[in-house]
Design a protein around this nucleic acid. Structure first.
Lengths: 222, 222
DNA sequence: GAAAAACTGTACCTTGAGTACAGTTCCACT
DNA sequence: AGTGGAACTGTACTCAAGGTACAGTTTTTC
């Protein structure tokens, strides 16, 4: 499973506070790239905002390609950490698998609603619209990342389907992907309208859909 | 309303076949930009594929900015034409406003399903992830474009709501936006998985949601 | 206190994006 | 049957950015 990298160390250690520069570069780069696109972001932009020199940048990354790869990895790890955390919280509230899903979505929507600024955007979506600029390896990373999100939901949807009837002919993987879809779509709307409301609403609409689509076995009708 | 520019002429005439070069530039540019991003697409790329010289390009567009603006306008016009056409077709089948909506979604999903290649992507979404590279005017164009899509659905959802009960507390504008959201999200998934299935499924899931959310007035329960 | 890591600073090369404009061809109109 | 304008071509210039190279400096670690 992704998202658990505590025991692993890619040339880093958590005893002191290493990587602060590398991490700062990544954070700054992600922020700029989400607003300007990958090609629209120059290394110059990044090192200026990260308060580092070009030499320093190339000490950490062997060029823009490697930066992109590191950004995707970091993004997916952070994302999975958030999802696992929210699911962990939701699991405390109820033993019902459907309620756990709904609880997760409630927390996720609340989290977005309480953001001080507009949601920064999703690196995966941004890179998808510049896929030709990135190498195969990164596209594969992104694909695997989205499949992890699918699996995260698929497992829980299947669990819910043991207790409730799912009234749709569409595959459960599509229902799982609908979370990603609503979030990506909601982010785009939120960025266009410059507030988080749209994203929050789309997540809550997905929640509403699940609530409607899962009916108790007794009242199930094909 | 958008999409009707037949009577107007920005220095062009439909008697001969003018603008073929301009149109070719726009078509080629859109195609490249959807894969490489706006910043990732050079004028050189465009003129090479459009079989024109740099001078020829600058004869038609006063630079990359103006190209971007023309692309968004063209994209929104094309899109609205398709939507209006599909809604017109769906309106022939039924007088029930909900069935008309569902019919539209069926046709839209079928249309995507029958595409020979993966859906090319949405310019609006692509530009949203490079918004800082574009001027305010284009961002406003995009916003207005999305609002047109919203209105297109909002009107029909409200019409349906007169005959059925809509079982959600969320605003009808959000339910209208959910179409855009599902399509944008679906496109991203389809691009990542390199097939149209995901987009088709997301549109059909939106259809399923509407079908579940609109219940006949007799069986309505707060 | 020596060595390795984590940088800074500078200088340079190359590509290509974007701009500008002068010149050329094509065609419509009279 | 030639003039005027639209639709280009060709060329040339500028400047930013990506990337390279490397020598020197500071900071950390053993």
């Amino acid at each position: 499973m992704q998202g658990t990298n505590n025991e692993r160390d890619h040339s880093m250690n958590t005893t002191t506070k290493p990587e602060s520069t590398r991490e700062r570069i990544l954070a700054v780069a992600e922020s700029i790239i989400l607003n300007n696109g990958f090609s629209g972001t120059s290394i110059e932009d990044i090192i200026t905002q990260a308060a580092i020199t070009k030499g320093g940048f190339f000490y950490h990354f062997n060029g823009k390609r490697e930066l992109a790869r590191a950004l995707v990895e970091r993004y997916l790890e952070q994302d999975n950490r958030i999802f696992e955390d929210l699911f962990y919280q939701a699991d405390q509230d109820s033993d019902d698998p459907l309620q756990q899903l709904l609880g997760f979505l409630d927390r996720f929507a609340d989290m977005v609603e309480n953001l001080a600024e507009t949601h920064p955007g999703c690196l995966v979506a941004g890179f998808t619209y510049e896929s030709q600029q990135l190498d195969e390896e990164i596209q594969e990373l992104i694909k695997q990342g989205v499949l992890v999100w699918r699996k995260l939901f698929q497992i829980r949807l299947q669990r819910a389907a043991t207790q409730y009837s799912l009234v749709t002919d569409l595959p459960i993987t599509a229902v799982a992907d609908m979370f990603t879809s609503c979030v990506e779509g909601g982010i785009i709307l939120s960025r266009i309208f410059k507030n988080n409301e749209s994203l929050v609403q789309q997540v809550r609409l997905y929640r509403a859909f699940l609530q409607l689509a899962f009916v108790s076995r007794s009242s199930a009708a094909g």
